[in-house]
Simulated scan of single mutants.
Amino acid sequence: MKKTVLTMALCACAATSVQAAEWSDTSIGYRTGGRFREPFNGADIHKDILDINHVSGYAYGTNFFNLDVLLSNKTDPSAPGASSGAQEFYLLYRNTVSLTKATGNPFAYGPVTDVGMTFGFDVNTKDDAGYNSKKRMLVVGPTFSFKAPGLLNVGIYGLWESNAPTNEFSGVSTPRYRYDTHPMLGAVWAFPVGATGWSWEGFANWIASKGKDEFGNQTAPETNIDMQLLYDVGPLLGAKPKTFRAGFEYQYWHNKFGNDSKHVPGASASTPMVKAEYHF
Rank of each mutant, 00 (worst) to 15 (best):
5 V>R: 01
8 M>P: 00
9 A>G: 06
12 A>I: 03
17 S>A: 12
19 Q>L: 13
19 Q>E: 11
22 E>V: 12
22 E>R: 14
24 S>D: 12
29 G>E: 02
29 G>V: 04
31 R>G: 10
34 G>Q: 09
38 E>N: 09
39 P>Q: 11
41 N>I: 07
42 G>N: 13
42 G>H: 06
46 H>E: 14
48 D>Y: 09
48 D>V: 08
49 I>P: 06
49 I>A: 10
52 I>R: 05
52 I>Q: 07
57 G>M: 07
59 A>N: 13
60 Y>L: 15
65 F>E: 12
75 T>P: 00
75 T>G: 06
76 D>V: 03
79 A>E: 05
83 S>L: 09
83 S>F: 03
91 L>V: 04
92 L>T: 13
94 R>G: 01
95 N>K: 10
95 N>H: 11
95 N>C: 09
97 V>R: 03
98 S>K: 03
99 L>E: 03
99 L>G: 04
101 K>Q: 12
104 G>A: 08
106 P>H: 12
107 F>P: 04
112 V>N: 10
122 D>R: 11
125 T>Y: 13
127 D>H: 12
129 A>V: 11
130 G>E: 06
130 G>L: 09
131 Y>T: 14
131 Y>R: 11
134 K>I: 06
139 V>C: 10
140 V>M: 12
143 T>E: 13
146 F>G: 03
148 A>P: 02
149 P>M: 10
151 L>V: 15
158 G>A: 15
159 L>P: 06
162 S>N: 11
165 P>E: 02
167 N>M: 06
172 V>P: 00
173 S>H: 07
174 T>P: 01
176 R>N: 13
176 R>I: 09
176 R>Y: 08
183 P>F: 07
186 G>D: 04
190 A>R: 09
190 A>D: 13
193 V>S: 00
195 A>R: 09
195 A>N: 14
197 G>W: 00
200 W>N: 02
204 A>V: 07
210 K>Y: 04
210 K>F: 03
211 G>V: 05
214 E>C: 06
216 G>E: 07
216 G>N: 07
216 G>P: 06
218 Q>V: 08
225 I>H: 04
228 Q>L: 02
230 L>T: 08
232 D>K: 02
233 V>W: 03
239 A>V: 11
239 A>I: 10
242 K>Q: 14
243 T>Q: 10
244 F>T: 05
249 E>I: 05
251 Q>K: 15
257 F>Q: 05
258 G>M: 01
260 D>K: 00
260 D>C: 01
261 S>Y: 08
263 H>I: 14
277 E>Y: 01
278 Y>R: 02
279 H>V: 07
279 H>Q: 02
